[in-house]
Design a binder for these strands. Structure first.
Lengths: 358, 358
DNA sequence: ATGAAAGCGCTAACAT
DNA sequence: ATGTTAGCGCTTTCAT
């Protein structure tokens, strides 16, 4: 028994709200630095020095204050602390939403940050794709002033940073520019995907392209066209359509493609989500994959292996990209001289959604 | 070709650091409220009123200020704003680290938060499991004062909150207490898993239990024992061992179990990560799964389907749990009366890591 | 309708 | 060695 697509993206059902219990508990108050100071019989300045390990405090005082801090469970308020010091040891990862792509990056970043002395703060603007372009600028403005020491921005379209604030872009809008970036070899990956379909005998190959404002989407389409050209196969322009990078957007595009009288025998989807969407649409209208249609995706998010049939796709080393971007950010902050553009390889992952034509 | 375990948890290789480019770009300064005020020719107080939609500002002034805000790209600093107002429209999800379990919750929460008017801030203490107990308390203290209006805490062991601050615990240390909680039916799920192994004819069944301080781990072990007892099968205590909930911790335990002279024919691992670890160990010492050993996990994280062989497991509706916990938190903040304990069902997901004995 | 001023919790000169 | 003070960017009385 394999898990069908319905289970891959769990439906968040609207459940009945049965009001039955009123929740109301008495809580202790938040303890602030002044509480520590009063209890320890010193000034807040002294507590601050102890907290931050500054010189000029008697050993006995240090110990007493630390004891009180421990007893009271004091923890510095991040907002107040950063407002003043502009240093928090917190690194941000800014995403539009938490979906399979960004959460894979998060896993890699999380592993990389362990032991670095930094903590990780992932911030989602809450806007889905395109819902509000410029989310990255707004999120950055909101946090960069004080809360975080640097940021990794995932799939930004607008890039603009503040003085002295370090930013690394993952899979950015533009190709490598002045901004430090981490991405994978989208062009080569697309060639890989297309060549694979060609090697299976496919000639009528469709392409659902991603967000046109994303460099990675453009490179994937370019790779597709290059591979087709190299093979001497003409691209039927009616088979190349924008689908976006999300489930919903791609569904309509996939439906258009499959409704064509001379529909493609294979589709190279711009990413796994749109490929999964294509699988969904194909099933709905009774086209068997891979028997009647081959589908290949891009990304290799975990979900790509969970669908039926398991998706053949191009792997981007997402977790590693997350780790590399965080490492790059840390190095940048530390002033380490290093190459600020990292491009990682892609590779073909053959599963079961493609088969030879015929 | 399927993806082996080595690819599931991507190795973050230590790459050569080839210093080649120094990055240094000139950035514009952060624009603050006083900049807007000066440009618009009003006071910061007036700008604040406009930003927060307060009454008492002339229409013409409102428009002029909004224009300036737009032109300058002003965005309120989260730290400063919250320090003063104690209201941010940001909800926190506190986790020890970003691993498959918490990131699934994140996906569900992210979907639920869309359109709610809230933004999501996921905070990782950076400590791995057990590295520093009390991470939840410290993270909470750090953020709850100002930055977030409420929090979902994932797998907390220590629960303690501040006055007037709303917290929802997912998969908490203790059973349902005064604190609002979201979990799944761990006991029933464990019975399901054990019965499945029993139905396959297994009698020497081992159990790698999770963090003993976690209620869910205890319930899974209890369910295991209950199912065994109900079937009239004695539990060999040497086959029940603590492994923790992470890859590393479980590996040693799995190795011990499999090195036993009369080793188990089946293992019910406390969660998918320890099950995957068991698969790994089995392969390393040449025990074939499922031919010589059946393994069943718990959670159904996406990674469970990616390993070889694909893991049979007990599904927790993780994304839904994330969504429910966020909904609960939002309702709590809004003062909605409702049941503050949500328990979701578990179900068996049969893949390929178990087979009948003999 | 607008602005001056106080203060949120904290850090960093600067005094003592 | 410790405390006093100013102020980070913002919101909110309270005057004007």
């Amino acid at each position: 028994m394999s898990i069908g697509i319905d289970n891959v993206f769990e439906t968040v059902a609207t459940r009945p709200r049965t009001p039955s219990i009123i929740v109301g508990v008495a809580f202790p108050q938040r303890v602030k630095m002044s509480d520590v100071a009063r209890t320890a019989g010193v000034s807040v300045a002294t507590v601050s020095k102890v907290v931050n390990g500054r010189y000029g405090v008697a050993q006995a005082t240090v110990e007493r204050v630390q004891q009180v801090i421990h007893d009271l469970g004091y923890e510095a308020d991040l907002g107040a602390q950063s407002l003043r010091s502009h240093r928090t040891n917190v690194l941000g990862i800014l995403v539009a939403e938490f979906e399979p792509f960004s959460t894979e990056l998060l896993k890699g970043a999380s592993r990389e940050v362990a032991g670095s002395g930094y903590q990780l703060l992932a911030y989602s603007s809450g806007d889905g794709e395109g819902a509000a372009i410029g989310w990255e600028r707004r999120s950055l403005a909101r946090l960069s002033g004080t809360l975080i020491d640097g940021a990794v921005i995932v799939t930004p379209t607008v890039v603009e940073t503040k003085h002295g604030f370090h930013v690394v872009a993952v899979d950015p809008h533009t190709g490598p520019s002045g901004l430090p970036t981490v991405d994978s070899d989208n062009f080569a990956g697309a060639v890989l995907a297309t060549n694979y379909l060609l090697s299976l005998g496919h000639r009528r190959i469709g392409h659902i392209s991603g967000r046109p404002d994303l460099e990675s989407a453009r490179l994937r389409e370019a790779g597709f066209r290059q591979a087709m050209a190299d093979a001497g196969v003409a691209v039927d322009e009616r088979l190349v359509r924008v689908g976006g990078f999300r489930i919903e957007g791609a569904a309509g595009t996939a439906a258009e493609l499959l409704a064509l009288p001379d529909r493609p025998t294979a589709i190279f989807a711009g990413n796994d989500l749109s490929a999964i969407s294509t699988l969904d649409v194909a099933r709905a209208i009774g086209i068997a994959v891979p028997d009647e249609l081959s589908v290949i995706g891009f990304d290799n998010v975990p979900e790509s292996a969970l669908v039926d049939p398991p998706l053949t796709t191009i792997r981007q080393p997402l977790q590693r990209m997350g780790a590399e971007s965080l490492r790059l950010l840390i190095d940048l902050i530390a002033g380490v001289e290093r190459d600020a553009h990292i491009r990682l390889p892609t590779e073909l992952v053959v599963r079961a959604s493609c088969r030879p034509i015929g």
